[in-house]
Amino acid sequence: MLAYAIRRFGQSVFVLVLMSFLVFIGVYAIGDPIELLVNPQADEVERVRAAAALGLDRPFLAQYWVFLKGAASGDLGRSFVYNEPALTLILDKLPATIELAFVAMVMAIGLGIPLGLLAGLKPDSFIGRAIMAGSILGFSLPTFWVGLVLIMVFSVQLGWLPSNGRGETMMVAGLPVSFLTADGLAHLAMPAVNLALFKLSLLIRLTRAGTREAVLQDYVKFARAKGLSQGRVIGVHVLKNILIPIVTVIGLELGSVIAFAIVTESIFAWPGSGKLLIDSINQLDRPVIVAYLLVIVTLFIVINFVVDVLYSLLDPRVRLGGAAASH
């Protein structure tokens, strides 16, 4: 297990370095940030001075080397635009996004798995068909459109829910969170539903497919032949087997929800990190773009590691590190 963790860590560092290099090339190729940062009326002397101050006068590889040296000591550079450390900017915005993503995932999991089980156990019933029809809608309607319709109905027509912002927040462990206040919950409800809808549909379909396959297995029939209650057969024998693919997808989706909640954040003006990324790309604010992607990749690496550990807990045939487990 320890050897496995160390090897994973080594691979992760390699991925981070490679990724930062590719982003560097990408941003370098798009254009010169000086064009956007310096007043168009400024003279050449002013431009050269600005480029030198930001280190942009040096050759590309030298710039990357400066970045790498800084990154090794935890300094991911300062934003060209805000003149603040890039990491601080991101960590200020990220908690709001993470909160939104977690609430959305909890909704998707809490509803998706039970509904998927129900649809899988009774595929031909009215309720089973209704769940599947609903999941097709959740799958195919574009996120931005659903968001706009939600605002139209619940904010404009009914006036029940606020359409933008985080609302009142409460400090928990030094971070502001919305879900503990009534006003914050009201603000959180629509963006979370909007973000959860696609994941919910995905989980319903995944759970249903797994359930339909599992209930035909001999071990389910054998469990019933033992005289176990229906609840134990479904809740233990079926669920534990179908959880393996579900956990994988939840892990991947959690990462992507945090990284790419941009559309939902834009529609509901949720003050998260998605908007920061879009602004930074528009302004070629390279340190923020690179730092943001490094944070996201780190997040993915951590989530994948957790998923791998969960795997080995769920499925005894999986042993981390590839050690043979048979007797």
Binding site: Y219, F222, H237, K240, D315
Partner: peptide, 12 residues
């Protein structure tokens, strides 16, 4: 049952 490879639940 017939097939002992299938009757026991693999994850329990």
């Amino acid at each position: 049952f017939q097939d002992p490879m299938m009757t026991l639940n693999p994850v329990l």
